[in-house]
């Protein structure tokens, strides 16, 4: 989760010329339990690093969903792991689900489900150009895993293209919260 936030921030700040400030879970939760990352992405300098109500909430577990669901803005976007999270949305909230775990398993390693989700997230939000995110994946993952991670990223993008096509309208300058 933290790596995903780092990759999105890297893509926006280094590859796409925006400002991106990331804060991650710190403490025991960052070492094995449910954890979260928040990211503020903006065209202007980020003065306030924390998030009260995110515009976009990416969630990959039901535990994370239950913990953070009330924080999502009333007109925010929920992006979720379809097999694990069963959202109860407010009127005005858009949602996009992906079977990221199953897709990752089909690629051979469940651990890359965060990168599948990342490709999907980038496609839904258009927060940064797809290539900027792809490059950030490449420069952030451990050596020797690049090919698998890029496959995972592309699989997430393809899932979006197949399931949602042009239906999703991207938003920029948004606050993102990601939770497992």
């Amino acid at each position: 989760m933290v790596l995903s936030g780092h990759i999105i921030g890297h893509a926006c700040a280094i590859n796409a010329g925006m400002h991106a400030t990331m804060i991650q879970s710190f403490g025991p939760e960052a070492r094995g339990s449910a954890c979260s990352t928040t990211l503020v992405v903006s065209d202007t300098e980020v003065l306030y690093p924390y998030i009260q109500r995110p515009d976009i909430f990416v969630v990959m577990s039901s535990e994370g969903y239950n913990q953070y669901r009330d924080e999502l803005k009333d007109d925010g976007i929920l992006i979720y792991e379809k097999d694990l999270v069963h959202p109860k949305l407010k009127k005005g909230q858009a949602s996009y689900g992906i079977t990221s775990t199953r897709i990752a398993e089909s690629l051979g390693r469940k651990i890359v489900q965060n990168i599948v989700m990342l490709g999907f997230f980038g496609s839904v939000t258009k927060i940064a150009p797809r290539e900027a995110l792809r490059e950030a994946v490449l420069s952030s993952v451990p050596a020797g895993t690049e090919e698998l991670n890029l496959k995972a990223f592309d699989a997430g993008c393809e899932y979006f293209d197949k399931e949602f096509g042009d239906a999703a309208k991207g938003k920029s300058g948004k606050k993102v919260k990601a939770g497992t």
């Binding site: 280094i14 991106a20 400030t21 990331m22 991650q24 690093p49």
Partner: peptide, 9 residues
């Protein structure tokens, strides 16, 4: 701590 744990360009 905030500046220390905040990630930016």
């Amino acid at each position: 701590e905030c500046v220390g744990h905040m990630t930016e360009k």
